[in-house]
Each structure stands twice: as structure tokens, then as C-alpha cells.
Design a protein around this nucleic acid. Structure first.
Ligand code: SF4
Ligand code: SF4
Lengths: 147, 147
DNA sequence: TTGAAGAGCATGAGATTAGTGCTAAATTAG
DNA sequence: CTAATTTAGCACTAATCTCATGCTCTTCAA
């Protein structure tokens, strides 16, 4: 239904929160208190982000999570993929396969549209999300599909 | 999960099929035979498209569906909205509301990203989908978010 | 040693979607 | 008029996915 999951959004909110204080580790409890998100679920999301290498977890007192990537260089698509898996607007898009692939008249066009959507996420960075002006920077050049 | 539903895709395939022969009405049976889609479901999808005013249904022998809109002027987003409802990449986007709205640090940026994604669908037309070169035409100008 | 915190795994409840069944209404052909 | 064709409308089941939570184990600092 062309919609981000809660997990992805919680993850983005958490990453954005961490982007501010990257000096020390911040606990799930503190993040959750600030973002009004179910803490237990937020913990699960952060675990996944840690597995994906986007944040670093530290146990024990004074433990928590710390941002690893640089906000200016971290595409939102990366975060989404870590939390939701590969982004496939349509089955055939981005390396995926579809049973209708042979003989689907819109396949080519579909792939292109799906690619453009993925581009939006790949060209917006975490810092863009915070500056509330994502993709203002790169603005892709005019693109024509290779026929 | 940032993905189009089957219904939307079936609808787009059907619309693309109808785009070719817009002179007469084509039955669900014939469309289904050509597209290898569960006919019963395809019928449901086409009914929704008819309700949405995108196609016109005619009953009886020689009945079927006929494209109403002009492929060059019909945005894909329109088709998707008719079949899936309003496009909300995030809850707060595009007029929607979210419980975290107050105090969400990424809300502004999120809305903008969601808007860009919606733009991709709104700027690609049905004929673009067929030509396998959607959005090659308009290529939006550089945009900066009003802060 | 103790308490704070993440890591890992599992599970239940809820929402959404895919797909099907059935009946009624309209329309055309004979 | 009758029969066949085809859409219109509604309901329903099964599968899938997401949200959310519970419990245990490990790590680590004080
Ligand atoms: S566009 Fe065609 S090939 Fe691609 S996922 Fe949709 S149906 Fe399959
Ligand atoms: S960005 Fe913030 S306000 Fe918008 S939907 Fe996500 S949580 Fe809600």
C-alpha cells in the first residue's frame, strides 16, 4: 500500500534523535521517553539497526546506542532497508522477480517508476530529514529511460 | 512496506491493456486471458476503476470496459488512489494526521519525502508507463522546501 | 555482587490483502 | 419473450504481515 511501516518510522525517529547527541551512548529508555514510542518495540528496532551496522549498542550501565554513520552520508533508503528489507515497490523492481515477468507490458515502465521512488529515499539523507529540506541538495538531472 | 498492492498493479496492467483498444468495450474475460491474472479478482479491480470514473463499464453481450481518461493525461497516482485509497507514505503526509504529530522532529522532513514519492506517481502518466519512459517528460525543477 | 542495559527468541493479537462465491441487474441476440 | 452474456454489488475465507509484548541470557560498570 505504498507506506512505510511503523518500524521504519520509529527507526528514523530514533536515528534522528541520536544524530544530535552522537558523543555518548543513549539508552532505549531515554530515547523512548523523548519520542513517545512503545519502548519495547523501539528496543527491537534499535537492535535491528545495530545488526545492520547503522548504530552501535553498548550494554551495562551508561550503555545504549550511538550513531555510527554520518547523518550527511546516510541515505534514508539504507535505514528503511535495514528495518524492512529490500525496497520493492513492485515485485520485478530492483532485482526482484515476478511470475508475470514474461509478457508484462508495463514491466519496463514499472521498473523505472519503482526506481524513481527508490531514488527519492536513496538521495535523501538523515540530515536532510532533520533539516526538513531533503533532496534539496542533489536534485537529479533529467533522466530518460534507455529503451 | 512501501509496496504497491496487487490490486493496484492489476489495475495498471488492465488500464495499459485498455489503452491500446479504446474504440470498443473489452470484457474482463478477454483482458484476463491476455494478462494471466485471476479473472475474478481482475473483475473486482475493474469494478473499482469504474466507480472511480477511470473506465466505463457496459453490461450484456459485447459489453466490457472502455478507457475513459486519456492515457497521456492520466497520472498513475490517480489509478493507485482509486484502488488503494489515499497515498500516505507516512501517516502525517498529504493531509493525514498522526498521533506523534506534536513534537515529532522529523515530521517536516518526512512530509517532504513523502510528497516527493507521491510526485513520482503523480507526474508519471499511463502512457509513460507504456512507453517505458515515465517522467522523462516533466522532470521536476529543483525544489527547496519552504522552511 | 548487584543493578542497568542490550541481545536473542518467541509468541499472540490485530490489520490488511488476495482471492473466491453468489446473486441481481442490464443488455443484446434470436 | 427468452436465453445468454456480462457487469454490479456484497460477503466471506484464508493467507500474510505488522504491531506489540514477554521472557531469558549476556555484558558491563560501580
Ligand atoms: S510490472 Fe509486471 S513484471 Fe513487474 S511486478 Fe508488476 S506484474 Fe510483475
Ligand atoms: S513523521 Fe512523525 S508525525 Fe509524521 S507520521 Fe511519522 S511519526 Fe507521525
Amino acid at each position: 500500500m505504498l507506506r512505510l511501516t511503523r518500524r521504519a518510522e520509529y527507526g528514523l525517529m530514533a536515528m534522528a534523535f541520536l544524530a544530535g547527541r552522537s558523543e555518548s551512548h543513549i539508552s532505549v529508555r531515554e530515547i523512548g521517553n523523548n519520542l513517545a514510542i512503545p519502548k519495547r518495540l523501539l528496543a527491537e528496532v534499535l537492535k535491528d539497526l545495530a545488526r545492520g551496522g547503522l548504530v552501535e549498542g553498548a550494554r551495562g550501565p551508561n550503555g545504549g546506542y550511538r550513531l555510527l554513520a554520518e547523518p550527511e552520508l546516510l541515505p534514508l533508503g539504507r535505514v528503511v532497508e535495514v528495518l524492512e528489507g529490500p525496497i520493492h515497490v513492485a515485485d520485478c523492481a530492483d532485482g526482484g522477480s515476478c511470475e508475470h515477468e514474461s509478457g508484462c507490458a508495463i514491466q519496463h515502465g514499472m521498473r523505472f517508476v519503482a526506481g524513481r521512488i527508490k531514488q527519492v529515499l536513496d538521495q535523501s539523507t538523515l540530515s536532510d530529514l532533520l533539516e526538513s529540506a531533503p533532496a534539496a541538495a542533489p536534485t537529479p538531472p533529467p533522466q530518460r529511460m534507455p529503451v
